[in-house]
Write a protein that binds this DNA or RNA. Structure first.
Lengths: 143, 143
DNA sequence: GTGGTTGCAAAAAGTTTGCAGGCTC
DNA sequence: GAGCCTGCAAACTTTTTGCAACCAC
């Protein structure tokens, strides 16, 4: 049994999560899938070995594991489509409390020299930095 | 009439898009909303002046305007929740053709010095760079 | 007048919830 | 055995689609 799985099991136990057959299967699938699969993709994979598993179980496990920081969501903050009148290069800061999105102009990050090729042949056309944190209003509310 | 609206109208005409009452209302709303609204939020705003407008029209317009690069989507590439076994600091490169997501380790970008405070008090907890472009396999397929 | 656009309704897609039964520790 | 977890079904949310009537050019 791989060290990752052992770590997963002790992580779960440490956080009071049962190590079920299904939860382990979800984790293993994520461990073997390099492509950051969707819930549906995980479901398809896991069903091969566990034909009776339910999609709802996949969702529940993904949610619980993400909340316990055992896995992460690629798009944690905006599942809802949001639109922007600015089509130029700029970045976004997302408040993890109120979920508002603030524009960040690119000027602040012109020191960032992005290579045109990264990671074995990926040709970069565009990039965006997404900052996460607490906005001004929310940090005032806190105290 | 503001210069932005004039520009919008000539943009539309240049791309063969009709300038309808509804399309203009969607654009104006996006122009006045700083918060990168959702379709539903735009719908609520626009309904005040155009009570008979339909939500489907909002969606159709947002789609058409985004495709013509007149507006942009804040999350253009992954509307579907996707999950990642790696909870540490790293970045993603998304292929705009096959929509696969490749991990980019942070080491490559340690030159990027992110201030802990940006834009009037926003406190940065975390950040991710999202690269968009063409992956190796897709660029091979092209020729 | 032609062709793109609208509004409605229905459908599709993705995700969440409630609950009875089952499993983990 | 207690409490969390599963599977099912139903509900809910967000987005898309088909189509007849309508509007922009």
């Amino acid at each position: 049994m791989s060290q990752y799985i052992e770590l997963f099991i002790s992580d779960c136990k440490g956080k009071g999560l049962s190590v079920t057959y299904q939860r382990l299967a979800v984790f293993k699938c994520l461990m073997n899938c390099k492509n950051h699969p969707t819930a549906e993709e995980i479901f398809s994979h896991v069903k091969i070995d566990h034909p009776t598993i339910s999609l709802a179980t996949i969702y529940k496990n993904l949610e619980v594991l993400a909340q316990n920081n055992i896995i992460s969501k690629v798009t944690p903050l905006h599942d809802l489509a949001r639109f922007d009148i600015d089509t130029g290069l700029h970045h976004h800061a997302v408040c993890i409390k109120c979920r508002n999105i603030i524009d960040i102009p690119n000027d602040d990050f012109d020191s960032l020299s992005i290579p045109t090729q990264i990671s074995s042949g990926f040709e970069v056309k565009n990039y965006k930095i997404q900052f996460e944190g607490i906005c001004n209003s929310c940090s005032k509310l806190n105290h």
